[in-house]
Write a protein that binds this DNA or RNA. Sequence first.
DNA 1: ATGGTAGAGCATCTA
Length: 269
Amino acid sequence: MRIATWNVNSLNARMPRVEQWLADVRPDVLCMQETKLADSGFPAMAFEAMGYESVHHGDGRWNGVAILSRIGLTDPLVGFEPGLEPDTDTRLVSATCGGVRVTSVYVPNGRSVDDPHYQYKLSWLGRLRSHLDTTCRTDGKVVVCGDFNIAPEDIDVWDPTAFIGSTHVTAPERDALAAVREWGLVDTFRQRYDGVEGLYSYWDYTAGRFHKRQGMRIDYLLASAPLAERSTVDLVDRNARKGTKPSDHAPVIAGYDVDAEDAEDAEDA
DNA sequence: ATGGTAGAGCATCTA
């Protein structure tokens, strides 16, 4: 099973590229972030014509997350589980796809460490941990993926000294991310490429960052142990960041050596 | 000198 995550930075602007990419790569599941669409504008029919069921959570100008699946899509849940403070700005959506509980997340940016949005980012990550605590089992097949807006380690940014005092690399952000991971999730990409520098998923549009290979690894797939133990592949599709009108993020793909289960067998996931 | 570019939408806000 192959699952991909891609911050498309406006699905309206990116639809031709997303359709081409789906036709070329045919992942079983694609999680998207920053669709910048209301639910009413989400092109579910176009994806259905390509064999993908979908669920979208968005309210218009900003954010917006989605899951596409060609191996079944059941039990969709938009936002956090009902017991928690609501996901008011549409940054989280979940669904069960082929026996895997998949969550697509767009973690708040934080803006700057002295901005209220930074505290919102930390509390949002705390809610994500609570959401996992109450809706998923650590011994089930669970993937939480998306744009986390956090570089887990200094090796995940092109120049750590360029980020001193900035968001995405601070200890509180990394601690909040670690608390999510410690629920029972593994960053298989970094496990596979332990110590390897220069592996990024995002490059700022400005200053020719992509061509200078000056990026950050802020998009990833976190897998529960039953999946992480069967990890087969992790990669970034840098080609999707090239050419005309690319997103500033590239798709990240993970593979797991598990068969898609029927929906009725997914209850224990 | 707080730069640069992209997207939404039409003045800025977000990233």
